[in-house]
Design a protein around this nucleic acid. Structure first.
Lengths: 119, 119
DNA sequence: GTAAGTACTAACCAGGAGGTAACTTAATGA
DNA sequence: TCATTAAGTTACCTCCTGGTTAGTACTTAC
């Protein structure tokens, strides 16, 4: 029930910009799904192929592209492992873990919405 | 720090579906901005033209389309007022107010992200 | 030498999201 | 009579997202 900060016009325009920023960085079909995947599997050996197989429906092209963007936004780390053949390990960064509340809010809303709309 | 529900594979697939649902219903460039607008101005006289003028950059076409979708998802109410010319009042529903945590999470993340990326 | 595994990349394409501008309908007021 | 206002709608266009299919570079195993 934080009334003042939300209704204050100045804070509001800041909030709108913040939300636009967030939608820009986290929007799209795959980005939050990838982050969710890596969040649940932090510190596991999340290689490119493993992620591609586990996230239903994603193509190599999209995975590669989205991982690059997430990496450039410091949300995901990329580590080449000198095995043979060379594998690449992706993990969520400590900073990236801050998306947890966003994902939690969406998951909660999604669960409640399914209840509401489909009885 | 809810570990069990998040790492439990069965709950996880449910979570993924929930998040997909949420992204489907709330995704896109305008929907959350409209909901944010109506959330801040609950019970005000939010007519079509007023919303169109206040939300920077949105066109009548997009506003009309998105409001229809939000209404069909029970997030927004539409009320025709018998003035002349006839005006239409839009408001967020009680159910729609449940998006508040989603918006709050995005706003918080957006603010923090701006700090991180732009120092 | 060839097949398979890993991590991509390139080329091509379709659909849809979203932008722009003009038009509609109905009532009112000058 | 003409302009104005509110709430859309329609037609048209563009660009981006994302899908599909191949192909590349490298290394090891057979």
């Amino acid at each position: 029930m934080i009334k003042k900060p939300i209704t204050d016009p100045e804070v509001c325009t800041g909030n709108i910009r913040a939300m636009t920023d967030a939608l820009e960085s986290l929007g799209g079909k795959w980005r939050l799904l990838i982050l969710h995947y890596l969040l649940v599997r932090a510190d596991e050996n999340n290689t490119f192929n493993k992620i591609e197989k586990d996230i239903e429906g994603i193509s190599a092209k999209m995975l590669s592209k989205e991982l690059k963007i997430l990496e450039s936004n410091l949300l995901v780390s990329r580590e080449v492992q000198q095995s043979s053949p060379v594998t690449v390990k992706y993990n969520i960064t400590e900073y990236g873990k801050q998306v947890r509340p966003v994902i939690a809010a969406l998951v909660n809303w999604g669960l409640a919405h399914r209840m509401e709309v489909f009885q």
